[in-house]
Simulated scan of single mutants.
Amino acid sequence: MLPKNQRLRLSQDLTATVRSGVRSGRRNVVLYARRQADPVSGDRIGFIVSKAVGVAVKRNLAKRRLRAIARELRSDEGNLDIVVRALPGAAELSWDELRQQVASGWSAIEHKLVDR
């Protein structure tokens, strides 16, 4: 579990990031990011895992894996709000495949934000 100050917990924060942030889609995950309005302690991360991913056991597995991957990729010096949306095939992927897709999307959104 990520500490409270490293999570996007309010629906308005998730919505603002999805609507006004940059987007990077992969086969089974989509990442959205935007710069924080008032920088806090590092990147903040939120997750969207809908029922389309599967039954509760599969959704929870996908969330646990995504949290662990995000913990590895997160930067303490960053000032981004990042939302990771799991698509239906995310629960069926192996750990390495899911990590590769998230890492690829993560680097893409960071490059897009540098260009902005």
Rank of each mutant, 00 (worst) to 15 (best):
M1W: 09
M1S: 13
M1Q: 12
L2R: 00
L2E: 02
P3D: 07
K4D: 08
K4R: 15
N5R: 11
N5Y: 10
Q6M: 02
Q6V: 00
Q6P: 00
R7W: 01
R7V: 03
R7G: 03
L8D: 12
R9W: 02
R9T: 13
L10T: 00
L10K: 14
S11Y: 06
Q12K: 01
T15D: 14
T17C: 15
V18N: 04
G21Y: 12
G21M: 15
R23N: 03
R27P: 01
R27E: 12
N28W: 09
N28V: 07
V29I: 15
V30P: 07
Y32A: 07
Y32L: 06
A33R: 10
R34P: 02
R34C: 13
R34A: 01
R34T: 06
Q36W: 12
A37C: 06
D38G: 05
D38I: 08
D38K: 14
P39Y: 08
V40F: 02
V40K: 14
S41P: 00
S41L: 05
G42S: 06
G42K: 09
G42I: 08
G42R: 08
D43W: 10
R44Q: 11
I45H: 05
G46D: 10
G46M: 08
F47E: 11
I48R: 03
S50A: 13
K51Y: 00
A52W: 05
V53T: 08
V53H: 04
G54C: 02
V55Y: 01
A56V: 02
K58D: 12
K58N: 12
N60I: 09
L61Y: 07
A62R: 00
K63D: 00
R65P: 03
R65K: 07
L66V: 02
R67K: 10
R67H: 10
R71G: 14
L73F: 07
L73S: 01
L73H: 01
R74A: 15
D76K: 07
D76F: 01
E77L: 13
N79F: 04
N79G: 06
N79H: 12
L80G: 06
D81M: 10
I82S: 01
V84I: 15
V84Q: 10
V84M: 15
R85S: 11
A86P: 12
A86F: 09
A86S: 08
P88S: 05
P88Y: 06
G89N: 08
G89M: 09
G89L: 11
G89Y: 04
G89Q: 09
A90D: 01
E92F: 04
E92S: 14
E92Q: 14
L93Q: 14
S94K: 09
D96N: 10
D96G: 03
E97C: 09
E97H: 06
E97G: 03
E97R: 12
Q100R: 15
Q101F: 00
Q101L: 00
W106T: 05
W106M: 10
S107F: 05
S107G: 01
A108H: 04
A108D: 11
I109Y: 00
K112V: 05
K112L: 13
L113Q: 04
V114I: 14
V114W: 07
V114S: 13
D115H: 12
D115W: 03
R116G: 14
R116H: 13
R116I: 13
